[in-house]
Amino acid sequence: MQAFDYRRPGTINEADLALKAAPGARLLAGGQTLLPTMKLRLATPDTVIDLSAIASLKGIARKDGGLAIGAMTTHAAVAESADVKGAIPGLAKLAGGIGDPQVRHRGTIGGSVANNDPAADYPAAVLALGATLNTSKRTITADDFFQGLFATALEENEILTEIAFPVPQSFAYAKFDQPASRFALVGVAVARTSGGVRVAVTGAGQGGVFRWTDAEKALSANFSAAALDGLKLDASNVLSDVHGNADYRAHLVGIMARRAVAG
């Protein structure tokens, strides 16, 4: 790891100022992605701004009929939260299936979503549930937020502060583990929301998390696993690697979608 300056602001305002004062600074949440990247010298920021002292970024609240989860809330906190278990139990389960206990006690929802790894679990939930992402500057819808592999709508100097989830009629996430990393080889989140059925797929898209609109249509007409029979995801935009070629992944998307629908 190369030497860097370390800042630990106590408020979002101070964090904003710190970002402005140090162009190219990186925000540090749980460090589960950023620190390994720095150790490998793939990232060499001059300044690291640790968000862990900003109390307002942490915590889970019922708000406006939905759930508001602070960006710095750990996966373990989401997995164990009575509020999350009560309102969106599938989301608590998703959080409890990320990584291992150590990772779940360090890694944060904000870090995961801001990082937008194409195999990460949370982006599927955020997109399927049609969540809203609040930042230090504005509010962004899930459909606008995810913009490709490791790419989001977040601008430089913009801090993700909170993710607001509407409470759906139902939500489930089915994940097939990549055997080595245990990220999603394929993960499918299916939500019945006030805006209709939304199906989001992670692990498979060449452009990161995406909505499987054909499945949404089929499920809107008939919300049952059988409604997906015969429906095949076009494999031409699906990722291929040693763990799964596009055809296998596309097939798994169908299987995981059925399993998510079946609950």
């Binding site: 055997p179 080595a180 040693v242």
Partner: peptide, 18 residues
């Protein structure tokens, strides 16, 4: 797994499953 250029594709625990 090596690719045809002799690069180790599964060179970390992200890809090499223990």
């Amino acid at each position: 797994v090596y690719d045809e250029n002799g690069q180790l594709i599964t060179g970390s625990f992200m890809d090499y499953a223990m």
